[in-house]
Amino acid sequence: MKKSLIAIAVLAATSSAAFAQSNVTIYGILDAGITAERGGAAGSVSKVTSGAASASRIGFKGTEDLGGGLSAIFKLETGARIDDGTLDNTTSTLFNREAYVGLSSKTAGSLTLGRQYTPYYETLRDVGDPFAMGYAGTAKNLFPVASFMTRNSNAVVYKSPNLEGFTAAVSYSLGEVAGDASATRQVGGSLGYNNGPLNVAVAYNSKNNDTATVKTAGVGHNALIAANYDFKVVKVFGAFSKDKGLNSAPLNGPATAYGYTFTASQDSSDALIGLSAPVSAAGTVMASYIRKNDKEVANRDADQWAIGYNYALSKRTSTYVAYAKIKNKNGAGYTVGNNSEAGSGDKAFNLGLRHSF
């Protein structure tokens, strides 16, 4: 009997020690508000919407200390719609936002496998866009970050540690087409420097459009440079992207929003200038101008002006308002959306509340 009790005590102590080395966190964002869209062929739309500023989500992430500065890491994240309680995608993908597992070292960086953000998207979101891909003013409306440009499935991603302000990332997404290793393959990378008030980064993405049956579709290429500089009273942002080839600029919105079919450009560039400025201890103003320059014969250019305001009610809860307008030219058909929706017209207004946990 004593031996049994001792064995149970030892087992319990060992289990507790192992558990103490692991850390699992449940987290999420709840974002809901009112969105009014104008200018589309279907007419004006006013609705309760979810995820205008930040996509609503619930996630699980964790680490396990393996010793010697090495840790096992994982993340599972799914999107949800606060307006009706459904998943925010129409597929059967449960963890549609991120799903990966990997290893992380304090000195060597991290290596992860699964569904993950592209370095191109992270660079524009974290460095170049004052709206951080959210609100009506999101850079998603004109920059090529839709579809596979946002996240890759079947991706192997390496991220370096911070070395005197320098960081790097490399992403390789396997196409998994039998007999053709290059078909549907996607490769990306980024290099950044963040020190003091200066934050600057470059990123690259290439997508092979060949499939199991089509072998002449070609490759789409994207090259991006983004930067911001914090003057304390105002932070200034800038970004420039060159997009060349098939699917180098996938549309974020519907192709028929204005009653005609709009085809994405295969030769374009995108430029952004913007700012964010604190106007009180809890309030921040954001503004940006984006120009889409179509270099094809049709010359379907577009310009977007946007302004927004975020007010922090606490560390976890904030309220916001934003407005953006796009001017399409020569038959262009870009729409004003937000972080979670593509939009239906050339103008949109957001008023919402966001809480994180």
Rank of each mutant, 00 (worst) to 15 (best):
Y121K: 02
R38Y: 11
G137Q: 03
A155L: 04
S44K: 14
Y260A: 15
M1V: 14
V170A: 01
V234A: 13
S265L: 11
F166P: 03
T91M: 06
G220H: 03
G175D: 07
A42W: 05
A18L: 13
L224R: 01
R125E: 13
K329P: 05
R316Y: 07
G333S: 15
G85E: 09
R316L: 12
T90P: 03
R291G: 06
L70D: 11
L76W: 06
A217E: 09
L353Q: 09
P144D: 07
K75E: 14
V170K: 02
S153I: 08
G67Q: 01
R97C: 01
D126F: 02
K235P: 01
G337R: 00
Y27E: 14
F262L: 04
Y121S: 02
I82T: 00
V10W: 01
S340P: 00
G253K: 04
G352E: 07
A108M: 14
I58C: 04
T112G: 09
T123A: 02
L5P: 06
K329Q: 13
N252A: 09
A271M: 10
A32K: 10
F262P: 03
T261R: 13
F148H: 11
M1E: 14
T256F: 02
T216K: 05
G331R: 15
A53P: 01
S190E: 12
T216W: 02
W305G: 07
Q116D: 12
A9L: 10
A41N: 04
L94M: 10
G238T: 06
T317V: 15
V10S: 07
G79V: 12
A155Y: 00
V285R: 00
G220A: 09
Y229F: 12
A99D: 03
G218H: 04
Y320K: 04
G333E: 12
S173R: 05
D210R: 01
L103H: 03
L353E: 10
G33Y: 04
I29N: 00
K329D: 12
L353T: 09
T216H: 00
G40V: 02
R316G: 09
N328P: 05
F231V: 01
Y258N: 01
Y229M: 03
A41E: 04
G196W: 08
G134A: 03
G79L: 10
I290V: 14
L87T: 00
A306T: 05
D210S: 00
R291H: 13
A53F: 05
F95Q: 03
G43C: 03
A132W: 06
Q21E: 13
I26R: 06
V233N: 14
Y289S: 06
G196C: 10
S92W: 00
L5Y: 09
L251V: 14
R81S: 09
A298T: 15
S268A: 14
T118G: 04
N293Y: 15
A36Q: 10
A139C: 08
L111W: 08
K47D: 00
F349H: 04
E98I: 14
S356V: 13
A9E: 11
I29T: 05
S54V: 13
